Amino acid sequence: MCGRYVMARAVGDLVAEAEAEADANLELRQSWNIAPTADVPVALERLIDGKPVRQVHVARWGLVPSWARDIASGVRAFNARSETLLEKPTFREAVLARRCAVPMDGYYEWKTGPGNTREPYFVSRSDKKLSWFAGLYEWWADPAVQAGEPGRWLLSASVITLAAPDPETSEPALRPLAELHHRMPLPLAGPDLEQWLAPGNLGATEALALLGRVLGNAWKTAEGLRVEPANPAVGNVRCDGPWLLDPETGPGGTAAPGVVPALF
Rank of each mutant, 00 (worst) to 15 (best):
Leu177Glu: 10
Ala144Val: 03
Leu180Cys: 06
Val259Glu: 11
Arg29Lys: 13
Pro167Ala: 07
Arg60Asn: 02
Ile48Phe: 08
Asp192Lys: 08
Asp39Ser: 14
Leu225Asp: 05
Leu180Ser: 04
Ala207Ile: 05
Val11Gly: 00
Trp140Gly: 01
Val58Ser: 15
Trp67Gln: 07
Ala10Gln: 15
Glu171Gln: 14
Pro165Val: 03
Asp49Glu: 14
Ser66Ala: 15
Asp23Gly: 07
Pro247Gly: 09
Gly224Tyr: 12
Ser131Asp: 03
Ala144Cys: 00
Val75Glu: 14
Gly241Asn: 12
Glu83Tyr: 07
Asp23Glu: 14
Trp219Cys: 08
Arg69Phe: 06
Gly241Phe: 10
Asp192Gln: 05
Trp243Cys: 08
Leu202Val: 10
Ala233Tyr: 09
Asp13Leu: 06
Arg98Glu: 04
Ala10Trp: 14
Tyr5Phe: 15
Glu171Val: 12
Glu83Gln: 14
Leu197Ile: 00
Val64Gly: 03
Leu197Ser: 00
Val42Trp: 01
Gly253Arg: 10
Gln55Glu: 15
Ala20Gln: 07
Val159Asn: 09
Trp61Gly: 00
Val53Leu: 04
Val40His: 02
Ser66Met: 13
Trp132Arg: 07
Asn231Thr: 06
Glu119Asn: 13
Leu263Met: 06
Glu93Gln: 11
Gly212Cys: 11
Ala178Glu: 11
Arg9Cys: 11
Thr90Trp: 07
His57Ile: 00
Pro165Gln: 04
Arg175Ile: 07
Pro103Glu: 08
Glu21Pro: 00
Lys128Phe: 11
Gly12Asn: 12
Arg183Lys: 11
Gly224Glu: 14
Glu171Gly: 08
Trp67Val: 09
Ala20Pro: 05
Trp140Leu: 01
Pro172Trp: 01
Val123Phe: 03
Val75Gln: 15
Leu208His: 13
Glu109Pro: 02
